[in-house]
Design a protein around this nucleic acid. Structure first.
Length: 266
DNA sequence: TCGCTTGTTGATGG
DNA sequence: GCCATCAACAAGCG
């Protein structure tokens, strides 16, 4: 789930729940989500600190504390939940921050593919987060062209490569490409100027609506609303949707609206 | 038991 | 170095 719009929603949860509040206690219920630190280390570093205003960078959430910065990555199944203190815990609540004011911020994650880090300074932050391209949510047309320049691979794996663009995941990439009528296997160098323009326009529109919903909305006129149906049809033209693997990920597209393009020669 | 999953990383081979 | 593929991480579901 967690792609740019989801993480944007978690940012709002974090800020509304924990922004400006003091950490009274940290309960580590499963240390399998702690990266590069122990439960005791996390408690020691954050107890008594006050969370500042969090920030999203691609699929990462960064929460300053006045001391170390808490970095969160949600993998495929992570989420943030704000709860009244003492309310029943979910089995997948891995870390609970008990806050001043009687609330709790909970890092909930079924699969524990990613988790929580602490960064001491910008250098450390960069080391943890690694190479990130420009955020897909604030990308100009020129920025998109610059990000794609020099890449010779297929369009979808390039768009979901976080070092090229930060924030797009499997679902969003399919949705954006469907809207822009571009085949996910289109070689990046084969894109015309007009196609890159459409890609940019539809990326912005898709992201805007998704961020407003806090996820990629599975609406009737969205590809996402049809991709899980056993025999889904394109909401635009009614053609039976095609399924396959592109860049190793399950991919859905409309074989009528999204025609394959040739690799350019030369 | 196997295959599959909306994320990422590292190994390997072309 | 770039790109594609695969395995691994982990947990649950059909």
């Amino acid at each position: 789930m967690p792609e740019l719009p989801d993480v944007e929603a978690y940012l709002r949860v974090f800020d509304g729940c924990a922004g400006g509040r003091q950490v009274r206690r940290v309960e580590v219920r499963d240390s399998g989500v702690l990266r590069g630190m122990t439960a005791a280390g996390l408690r020691r570093e954050l107890t008594g600190r006050r969370f500042g205003r969090p920030e999203r960078r691609g699929k990462w959430l960064l929460a300053p504390t006045g001391g170390p910065t808490l970095l969160l990555h949600f993998g495929m199944t992570g989420e943030l939940v704000c709860a009244e203190g003492g309310r029943e815990r979910h089995p997948h609540d891995r870390v609970v921050f008990v806050l001043g004011g009687g609330r709790e911020l909970r890092f909930r994650d079924q699969r524990k593919l990613k988790g929580l880090w602490l960064a001491h300074g910008l250098e450390d932050e960069r080391r943890v987060i690694g190479d990130q391209g420009p955020d897909a949510g604030a990308l100009s047309r020129a920025g998109l062209d610059a990000a794609l320049a020099g890449h010779r691979g297929r369009l979808k794996p390039t768009l979901t490569d976080q070092s090229v663009l930060a924030g797009l995941g499997n679902l969003l990439a399919d949705e954006i490409l469907w809207r822009a009528r571009l085949h996910p296997r289109t070689p990046v160098p084969a894109l015309s100027d007009a196609q890159r323009g459409r890609l940019h326009r539809d990326m912005r529109a898709t992201l805007r609506a998704s961020v407003a919903s806090g996820r990629v909305p599975p609406g009737r006129d969205w590809l996402t609303g049809h991709r899980d149906a056993p025999a889904g049809d394109c909401p635009r033209c009614g053609t039976r949707l095609a399924r396959g693997r592109v860049g190793g990920r399950g991919t859905v597209w409309c074989p009528h609206c999204q025609r394959e393009q040739e690799t350019p020669r030369g």
